[in-house]
Design a protein around this nucleic acid. Structure first.
Lengths: 252, 252
DNA sequence: ATTGCGGCTTTTATCATACAAAATAATCTG
DNA sequence: CAGATTATTTTGTATGATAAAAGCCGCAAT
């Protein structure tokens, strides 16, 4: 009855932490709908048995999920899945679990909507608030894009470009928001280039954004970003319409 | 050497969890700048001593802070404060710590900026995507505002009104974002009324939003929200300029 | 029969202790 | 001096015991 290694414990080692992989597993299954909001989770002893780990590990995992707003645990009651409204969906982990579980089409559409709302205004703010140092950062990233020969170099520079604008906007709240969106999108596909042929295609669009921010023209920056999003939006459209993508082990 | 109750441990009981109050304390001190990014925190034993609690409690607190992206702990190294870019600032707790620690003027300005970016577009999306049921929710909230006699009734209905629009926008990512902003703002002052005399003042503005969403006119909705924000923005301006507000039990 | 009180039981919360593993620092050997 | 080896420190995991919360049951009193 020892090395039971029940079901879900397919995770081999996961570099370091055990509690982390336990949290990972439970969290994914909650986002997955296997444990719906309001559901009472198995108690600690049952988790210990099913994962074959100690209570310590399970409890630390539960504390992490608690910190992310997924569950609430109380003595004698157990751990109950919280209503969706208290989930920290904008947490990197939670978002990645959601992203793996949810309908990818829906998810991408929503993500794109948020980008279309945020990015133009972020650029407009950057045009107003940027410092010279931040401007230099943006220009460096742009130059790196211009000189990029490989797809990965292009995309890396692209990410830096976006982040530099984000920082230049000078809004503490916008930064984490942008980073989360980026990291979620980045794990699915790249910003403005998905094939070798795309390299440089959107460079003029980026140049317009750069110029607007340099010239401190918020409205021009806003329009330039909208234009760029229209161009690259097609990439998303392609993905969402064909929607083959990794179907991600459709278990149950 | 027992009831040492060192320094920070001013927290008496805090209904339930010990690990929670430990996390609270450490988290606040990180956001506070007492432990800057890159800093190595005291090790578990030292925390145990300084809080007078067991290692279990400290570890669970640390796991929570880890889950929120504030720190990273590794064997032999200890717990290091992560760079700000990995902080989940959009987590309720983290935001509240930040809000307590940061320059309130800055914070409010940034918050208001985010509102000005998000809310008009949220309303526009709601105008497009709303279902009839969601429309009814919005109208109910509006009616409650219209009939509100007390300040608290008005503000409660106001929050419901905003949330109903948020839900009607039909974007899974926008919802948690809006909720976080709301909860942070709500903890500082109320939405559109801060004095008895303000009750009903913005009712016509709300009515315009309502009508636009009912009529499925996204652009009208956008404009109506912008108008309302301009009206209520003044409240923020007042607060940020005078900036007395309850100084929040300046304990230690 | 209903209600209020007290004890029972389950489950998490906390504590204490021991050992394992990781990563650095120190040391030894060639 | 270089490289490998051993120490050491700190977190990670396991285990077992006790405390506290909160529902549950039953008993009793009116």
């Amino acid at each position: 009855m020892r090395g039971k290694t029940t079901s879900a414990n397919a995770v081999p080692a996961m570099r370091g932490s055990l509690h982390r992989s336990v949290a990972q597993d439970i969290g994914a299954r909650i986002l997955n709908g296997e444990f719906a909001p309001g559901t009472l989770l198995p108690n600690e002893a049952e988790w210990c048995a099913s994962f074959g780990v100690s209570r310590t590990a399970v409890r630390e995992a539960i504390k992490m999920l608690m910190a992310k707003g997924l569950i609430l645990s109380r003595p004698k009651i157990g751990s109950r899945v919280q209503p969706r409204t208290s989930w920290n969906l904008l947490d990197r982990d939670v978002l990645s679990w959601y992203c793996a579980a949810a309908n990818p089409t829906h998810f991408l559409v929503h993500m794109q909507q948020v980008r279309e709302i945020l990015e133009p205004e972020t650029a407009a703010l950057a045009a107003v608030n940027r410092t010279d140092g931040q401007m230099a950062e943006i220009e460096n990233a742009f130059n790196a894009m211009a000189e990029a020969k490989t797809l990965s170099a292009w995309n890396a520079a692209d990410v830096v470009f976006h982040q530099a604008i984000l920082l230049a906007a000078g809004n503490e709240l916008l930064v984490p928001l942008g980073l989360v969106i980026e990291s979620a999108l980045g794990s699915m596909f790249n910003y403005t280039a998905s094939q070798r042929g795309d390299i440089g295609r959107t460079l003029p669009g980026h140049a317009r954004i750069l110029a607007a921010i340099r010239g401190r023209k918020p409205n021009a920056a806003r329009l330039a970003v909208r234009q760029l999003l229209r161009d690259t939006g097609r990439v998303v459209d392609q993905v969402t319409s064909s929607r083959p993508k990794r179907p991600r082990a459709a278990k149950a």
